[in-house]
Design a protein around this nucleic acid. Structure first.
Lengths: 333, 333
DNA sequence: ATACTTACATGAAACCTTTCAAAGCACAAG
DNA sequence: CTTGTGCTTTGAAAGGTTTCATGTAAGTAT
């Protein structure tokens, strides 16, 4: 059972001191050529790999960031986490990923895990806003960046798309194409409030047009399906003629429901516009017009903020990065 | 700067010994009621959280598993990693996720990271088969489970769908619906060899039917698009009348390309069948007939194997779990 | 009052590193 | 032969935890 080959085993086997082995690893220039060779030979003879945990305990401060997303299975977050991983790699950090699945308890579990693990910072898309747990963590010095569409979170750095601007783009596109009975569908409200706000604002600029909100509990295809079916049950003259969905997945669900009814056409009868530009959007039954979120830029901004906060510590001035969205015109609106 | 509050600070502040604090945390029954209360009060006054790294250094053996998938953005792997995380949670473990993006160097990087981190075991979908790096790691005692469709990997536990059976299901479905000029599209070959084998085998059972293979370099919508366009460039009488794609994403790409050409219908002119049953499959332009991979069962099997290997150690007899796939009939075939 | 349990608290060792002051050594200069 | 100098190597401490053999005090039996 040769398990547990540590720096000590290497030292013994090579007949040198522990300190020398450590130096050979971390400051090769401080060690004579033949020692270095000897130690290195011994190391890979024994198959030594440094125990990064112990190292971190000693040195304090590692190289790992924690990230909590709402749902890995949501393509937007898959893309975002991937982008963060790439951005972190460029800065010499790693990202470990957790998926809260929109469950506050799972979110808490990951916060605990990451805190115990002493990660260097946290990137989180909060299920339901900033919790006391997070505030405490942050106050105790944990660098923290929120992916929160609501930039007003006080005391935290946030990174987000400018959801209001995105919503305005979407809604004005609908209005300009002659729609005037709009519906906004999305939820939970907290996560989409800015989109809703922007939509309302834009509608306000166009007298004679109306918008109503239809809430969903999550943001996937199933929720959209349910909403679509509900809309179909309304008398045709009451149905919206333009729908802005807070998420592409929701939009796709709505589309599927609508198209399953005979005689309902998209976009002729109902124009539909989504949000995120996930890859599915372009391959939907009717290619989906949507608002693009530039995940790579989001990721870069988030990493830059979290690392800055790590450097500058408590006296850090919190920033709110708001990235500009873009309208992607396809067929559905 | 109250940073770094450890068990020692708690002990001092409460006026007890370090050992007592540790006992209060880990064996509360060995500590008198009032001590326990005192210590706990002190702990959350100071905001103490145990340093799991140090704990692991001392105790040896943590509670974290590493997982490397080919691409988080691929919905199948998103679902699989999610399922693994859930399964791990039930066994009191956590999973940290890495995405190799099919790049061997990134795969290696994660292997190194996880080894240094002393994870308790590894779940990996290998980019290009078992590498020396993996073999060495495994030989040094790292529990290892491969998500590899090729069950013949010697010396390793593997978990996979029975790709041959899945392919037979798919192909026989195509043949029974009257198609006989089939094409298999997928790649890299290593990752889909079993599907290809099963397809060939089934075709062999039906005299008069043929199948050819079209290789792709990756497994996403783009690859499918390219193949679809290539097929459209062939004269109609040479085109396949049934296509079995190694992946839903590829199938969706092909579908999109085919349907963009006027007069080509799915499934009337070309029947199309995918593999994985990702959520996108049901929301495609023509809902996609596909082979379902039961990710939850895959995950459970993988976890059970990796934990078993962890318990039983070197003398462990390696198992190959092969799960049965199912045909999901929708509209495309 | 003495001896013997019980129940709890303690301090030190251990885990695997890194770091740092001190020691060793060879060799040139005085 | 001593002293100084520069370069390597060493041993021990430290980092935050767990564990274990002792120590202590109170409680019980005689």
């Amino acid at each position: 059972m040769s398990r547990a080959v540590g720096i000590r085993q290497v030292a013994e086997h090579a007949g040198v001191s522990i300190g020398t082995v450590s130096n050979a690893i971390n400051r090769p220039e401080m060690v004579s050529a033949k020692m270095l060779a000897l130690v290195q030979a011994t190391m890979d003879e024994l198959g030594f790999v440094r125990n990064d945990l112990a190292r971190q305990v000693r040195m304090g401060g590692g190289t790992t960031l924690g990230m909590i997303v709402l749902n890995v299975e949501n393509p937007f977050f898959a893309a975002l986490s991937n982008a963060c991983e790439a951005a972190a790699e460029q800065n010499g950090f790693s990202v470990v990923l957790g998926s809260s699945s929109q469950v506050p308890e799972r979110e808490d579990r990951y916060l605990d895990l990451f805190e115990g693990q002493r990660v260097e910072g946290l990137l989180v898309a909060p299920v339901d806003g900033v919790t006391d747990r997070m505030r405490k963590l942050h106050r105790h010095g944990m660098p923290f960046v929120l992916f929160d569409p609501d930039a007003a979170v006080p005391g935290f750095c946030t990174v987000a798309m400018d959801g209001e601007a995105g919503a305005r783009l979407a809604v004005s596109h609908l209005l300009e194409s002659g729609r005037n009975r709009l519906a906004f569908v999305g939820g939970p409200l907290h996560q989409v409030r800015d989109r809703w706000r922007g939509a309302v604002e834009e509608v306000g600029r166009h007298p004679g047009s109306t918008i109503r909100r239809i809430d969903t509990i999550d943001q996937n295809v199933q929720d959209g399906l349910a909403v679509g079916e509900a809309i179909l049950r309304e008398p045709p003259e009451r149905r919206p003629d333009g729908i802005f969905a807070a998420t592409d997945l929701i939009a796709i669900g709505i589309m599927q429901a609508l198209l399953s009814a005979p005689g309902v056409r998209v976009p002729e009868d109902v124009a539909l516009i989504g949000y995120d530009d996930i890859s599915q959007a372009s391959t939907a039954i009717v290619p989906l017009t949507t608002i693009r979120q530039p995940t790579a830029e989001l990721a870069r901004a988030a990493l830059s903020l979290v690392l800055t906060e790590r450097e500058e510590g408590v006296d850090h001035e919190h920033q709110h990065a708001l990235l500009a969205p873009a309208l992607v015109r396809r067929r559905s609106a």
